[in-house]
Amino acid sequence: MKRDKDVYARLFLSTFKLSACTFGGGYVIIPLMRKRFVEDLHWIDEQEMLNLTAIAQSSPGPIAVNASILVGYQVAGAAGALLTVLGTVLPPLVIISIVSLFYQAFRDNAIANMALAGMLCGVAAVVLDVVVNMARSVFRQKRLLPLLIMAASFVALRFFSVNILLIILACALIGAADTWVRGRKGAGT
């Protein structure tokens, strides 16, 4: 029992610390989780961690939250998952609550305004940099369908303000149909 408590405490503290110190979201926290749980604690083996990463990245929700659920569940079941989610969510909850207290004063300050205006340009650059990398990987597939989906989604969003959820659902249907058609082709030959 003492050992169990110890595992729970370490699960919570590990994810709390990782979340409190990780800037930049899921793609940064996953390598750090791997280091903590695979290399330091030996609670999860390398292969398992790769599988968990794949699930975390392809599931809805923040990647950091998904990964912590998977790790917690793997190590200590549902209770473990609950603890790791808490550990991951609490630091940003506290930090942003504090930031929002000062937001108004911060917003009215001339220098802070200049810094925010500059940072906004930085955010746009960071986001578009990610977009360039992702678009490149779509082009590299050398298939027409993904390119069509990308172009059509962009036009639908940008010029017709189509609801994003509709686009995602449509893509899910297209993906399922595509798999089915390709499966039949594969079975036929």
Binding site: A124, L128, V131, M134, V138, F154, C171
Partner: peptide
């Protein structure tokens, strides 16, 4: 297959938001 079809739409979404 479903995830593969969603990914290009994600790129478009993020691109539009970045814009």
């Amino acid at each position: 297959g479903i995830l593969a079809a969603m990914r290009p739409a994600m790129v478009a979404m993020i691109g539009s938001a970045g814009l």
